[in-house]
């Protein structure tokens, strides 16, 4: 088991490395980006050319990638912080430390100053959404799967098809139209400050609802399918025929086995949530990680894009690892 986890962790690290290189290729294929974005739109071309020269941006792509990797691991000093450039870019942590994501050309601040607050806000949003999705989808899915073909089952499958057909931004627009425009009971934006007259809790309701509703329908359907499959298994029939009360059949025999497959699905939802977060944060002007990634991509802020992608990928791959390990722990058959 430990060897398995170690092997997977190494694979994960390789994936992150390859992915960061791919992102570098896509964003930095045409160099010069950094020099122009650092100096802004009003800098003279000659100034940009000078910085371009000093930062060695005409080096081959591979060399620039390895340099970026060197800055990240703390073996190379961040070239943008070089005092000889007179850019006044200073990171209080110094110019050479492990985990140095470099300097954000959009915010004109170290990435590590920009990133973590927003990530915290997003973690709050996603965490709340997750706390709604899991119990809701488990209860609905189990109830529907217990009685396949019942009214609840039919209703759930119809509702969840409709729910998964509404993209997050569309759901945001619909909810804003109902609760903000029509009923006036919730705010339409969530900047997470209290100047607007709405409490933080009120500001969180709609973004959490958008994330939760979209995913809960999908997860509930997975739980339902798994539960319905288990309910048709011979050992459940045996338990019923043996005269056990229905609640014991369900709690002791069916539920445990029915929840193994959804366990994986639920953890993999985190990968989806990261995507959903980008859209939801844009709809509600939420000061989070996803909107920052979108802004950075549109601006062309390489350091910030790399940092955000690596974190998104780290979260996605580590939850996948967690789900695979959990699956092996829960399901004796998968252990071999």
């Amino acid at each position: 088991m430990i060897r398995y986890i170690l092997r997977r962790a190494v694979e994960m690290l390789l994936t992150l490395l390859v992915a960061s290189f791919l992102v570098f290729v896509v964003t930095e294929f045409s160099p010069g980006n950094v020099a122009r974005k650092t100096l802004g739109a009003f800098a003279l071309q000659s100034q940009v050319d000078l910085l371009y020269e000093k930062l060695h941006l005409n080096d081959p792509l591979m060399v620039r990638y390895v340099r970026w990797l060197g800055v990240l691991t703390g073996t190379v000093a961040d070239p943008l912080q070089d005092p000889a450039l007179k850019l006044d870019f200073k990171d209080p942590r110094g110019d050479r430390y492990f985990g140095n994501f470099g300097y954000s050309t959009m915010y004109k601040a170290p990435v590590n100053d920009v990133l973590w607050d927003r990530l915290g806000n997003t973690a709050l949003l996603a965490g709340l959404a997750f706390a709604v999705i899991v119990p809701l989808s488990l209860v609905l899915g189990v109830l529907a799967g217990m009685n396949a073909g019942s009214v609840l089952d039919r209703a759930l499958s119809t509702v969840s098809i409709v729910m998964t057909s509404i993209p997050e931004f569309a759901l945001g627009v619909l909810l804003v139209a109902i609760f903000v425009v029509w009923l006036h009971i919730l705010p339409g934006t969530s900047p997470l400050d209290s100047h607007s007259g709405w409490s933080i809790a009120q500001q969180l309701v709609l973004p959490v609802a958008v994330l939760a509703i979209y995913d809960a329908g999908y997860v509930a359907r997975m739980v339902r399918t798994s539960m319905a499959e288990v309910m048709a298994k011979p050992y459940v029939r045996t338990a019923v025929l043996k005269g056990l009360p229905r609640h014991r059949v369900i709690l002791r025999h069916a539920l445990r086995n029915a929840l193994i497959a959804p366990f994986t699905v639920i953890l993999l939802q985190i990968n989806w949530l990261i995507g959903g977060v980008v859209v939801t944060e844009l709809v509600f002007a939420y000061p989070g990680f996803g909107r920052m990634l979108l802004d950075a991509s549109l601006f062309g802020d390489v350091s910030l894009i790399e940092a955000a992608t690596l974190i998104a990928l780290f979260v996605a791959t580590s939850t996948q690892l967690l789900s695979d390990v959990g699956y092996r722990v829960l399901d004796p058959q998968a252990r071999r």
Binding site: N271, W272, G275, G276, V278, A308, T309, L313, A316, T317
Partner: peptide
């Protein structure tokens, strides 16, 4: 490719 969150 599949380890990327799609929207990202």
């Amino acid at each position: 490719i599949l380890s990327f969150p799609v929207v990202v």
